[in-house]
Nucleic acid binder design. Structure first.
Length: 562
RNA sequence: UGGGCCGUCGCCAAGCGGUAAGGCACCAGGUUUUGAUCCUGGCAUGCGCAGGUUCAAAUCCUGCCGGCCCAGCCA
């Protein structure tokens, strides 16, 4: 086959990885004429950033290779699953910007799964076991010792058929019988020591109701579901590597329309957070956070509420790559992705988080001026707006220092700075309260510097943001920090002991420019010099969530000096 | 000490026998009415270690060392 016959190379936005190489080869060789993948979440919790990696991979390759990707709920354990989760998962996948080819449930295949199991029994490849759970564990052996065969292993096919039919009919209580594959109790791979195929579980299923008293196990269900949907490449995480022989065994023994290839990749691990549905659920249940969509959570809904964009999350997933190596990604990579996206389109505004009153001594008492401000310095098409200026304003507390080092380009007595879009202003004095805390600055402005530039060409080192006291609106601002103080909290038994007590700081008396009164949850803002913010969609009063800070060179210098 | 898998810069990651891409982070400059953005430059004689094959090895072979996963009627 010449190069000209090959399927055109995909858009190289997404980096190549070993999975894409395999797919490329399978398409080139004609093993497959079209690609079919699937994203198979269990609806027992909300999706997190780790799932985003899998979603981007599965839907991403499908898009790039002109194939299809299904969304399939792996709902074979009714006790843990809930319709609330399936709806949340659907919302999250949509929000990430992907479109599935088919929306399926493993439970759609319960009848076919059952029929295949009967077929297996008829072939002598499966049997009904009456061993208890404890006995099964004992019989299984250990990592270094082979297991022992169950006394029921050689039950007749007729008896197996009869017992399995009665299991299905609901004649037995939970745990009374188990349908097992008849493989090899001495296999060095524990998954092949006669694994469970069906268990009796008289539980109400969110989709099939009380129709089934027995439910198929993952290993049996997943491969057959893949085959039924014509999946070509079944991508999953590393811990399923040992299950691949079983995946292949089932598909070899049962007459399915095709035999998908399972390929494993390393799951995403992010430093200073956790990506375990069980542990995330614990944080929610024990009220360490305010729900699955708490902006500190690494869930898709949490990140969204925090102000992350789907573009940033997808960019992040492209950057981290796909390999088989266990690894921990630094938070800085995620932050870089969101900063890059938001820098392009966030609307610039001014907001003072920790207000310090400033009186401009020589400014007219009752004057209010409307000053022109740009909504984005590099994108004029985003337009301009007007901000009110008056005699009393607020600036950021940390923009004033009583004893300022030479490199501090902000306010101190005798120093001149530019008030963004307004005037040059020089601090002449300050007022302290009885506790010695600075509560007010006295400044003088230069009327000739209106707009922020001086006709005499003199330069100021610093430009600070401000807000007119009379025109400012009050708001609450939530500042978020890493959820854990340990880079790998999941490693400890008691992972909650590493919860960061300062992961949330609520600022109640923030002063924002008036334009923010009409803030929308859809719009991402940059409060100049402080960070990116988004209006919180769950608060009654005006509240903003800080998505991420801006990079801060001064903070670095300041830290080094200490 | 059973089986499966993995080890390339602080964190990711290309590389597939021809002489170490890129991103993040970091460092040094420049531009700037955000100490932001942007721009420029720096950052592995080295690819877990030790041998071997070869004119040539991160890439092939052998042996070590280190790490992860598996003993649910969870997925």
């Amino acid at each position: 086959m010449s190069d000209n016959d090959k399927t055109p190379a995909p858009d190289l936005k997404a980096p190549v990885n070993f999975i894409r190489s395999i797919i490329r080869d399978d398409l080139d060789s004609g093993k497959h004429s079209t690609l079919q993948t699937r994203f198979p979440p269990e609806p027992n919790g909300h999706l997190h950033i780790g799932h985003a990696k899998s979603i981007c991979l599965n839907f991403g390759v499908a898009e790039d290779f002109k194939g299809k990707c299904n969304l399939r709920f792996d709902d074979t354990n009714p006790e843990k699953e809930d319709i609330e989760y399936v709806n949340a998962i659907i919302d999250d996948v949509k929000w990430l910007g992907f479109e599935w080819s088919g929306l399926y449930h493993s439970s759609d295949y319960f009848q076919q799964l059952y029929d295949y199991a009967v077929e297996l029994i008829k072939q002598g490849k499966a049997y009904v076991d009456s061993l208890s759970a404890e006995e099964i564990r004992e019989y299984r052996g250990t990592l270094t010792e082979p297991g022992r065969e169950s006394p029921d292993r050689n039950r007749s096919i007729e008896d197996n058929l009869d017992l399995f039919a009665r299991m299905r009919a609901g004649e037995f209580e939970d745990g009374k019988y188990l349908l097992r594959a008849r493989i090899d109790m001495a296999s060095p791979n524990i998954n092949m020591r006669d694994p469970a195929l069906y268990r009796i579980k008289k539980a109400h299923h969110q989709r099939t109701g009380d129709e089934w008293p027995i439910y198929p196990m993952y290993d049996y269900t997943h491969c057959i579901s893949d085959a039924i949907e014509g999946i070509t490449h079944s991508l999953c995480t590393l811990e399923f590597e040992d299950h691949r022989p079983l995946y292949d065994w089932v598909l070899d023994e049962v007459k399915t329309p095709c035999h998908p290839q399972q390929i494993e990749f390393a799951r995403l691990q992010l430093k200073y957070t956790i990506t375990s549905k069980r542990k995330l659920n614990l944080l929610v249940v024990d009220k360490h956070v305010d729900g699955w969509d708490d902006p500190r959570m690494p869930t898709i809904s949490g990140l969204r509420r925090r102000g992350y964009t789907s573009v940033a999350i997808r960019d992040f997933c492209d950057r981290i790559g796909v390999t088989k190596k266990d690894s921990f990604i630094e938070m800085a990579v995620l932050e870089n992705s969101i900063r890059e996206d938001l820098n392009h389109h966030a609307t610039r505004v001014m907001g003072v988080l920790n207000p310090l009153k400033v009186t401009i001594k020589n400014y007219p008492d009752d004057l209010t001026e409307e000053l022109l401000a740009h909504n984005h310095p590099q994108q004029p098409e985003m337009g301009t707006r007007t901000v009110n200026f008056s005699k009393v304003i607020y600036i950021e507390r940390n923009d004033f220092l009583e004893d300022a080092p030479r490199k501090f380009f902000r306010l101190s007595v005798g120093r001149e700075v530019r008030l963004r879009y307004a005037y040059y202003v020089t601090c002449t004095d300050f007022v302290k309260d009885e506790n010695g805390e600075v509560i007010e600055l006295i400044c003088e402005y230069d009327p000739a510097t209106k707009g922020g530039s001086s006709p005499d060409g003199r330069k100021v080192k610093g430009t600070i943001h401000w807000v007119s006291a009379e025109h400012a609106i009050d708001a609450t601002v939530n500042l978020y920090d890493r959820l854990f103080t340990h880079p790998n909290p999941a490693a400890s038994e008691n992972f909650t002991e590493h919860l960061n007590p300062e992961s949330l700081t609520v600022l109640k008396n923030c002063k924002l420019e008036a334009s923010l009164a009409d803030a929308s949850e859809e719009i991402h803002y940059q409060f100049e010099r402080t960070g990116y913010f988004v209006k919180d969609n769950k608060s009654d009063d005006l509240t903003f969530n800080r998505t991420v800070t801006l990079r801060d060179a001064w903070a670095k210098i300041d830290k080094q000096n200490q």
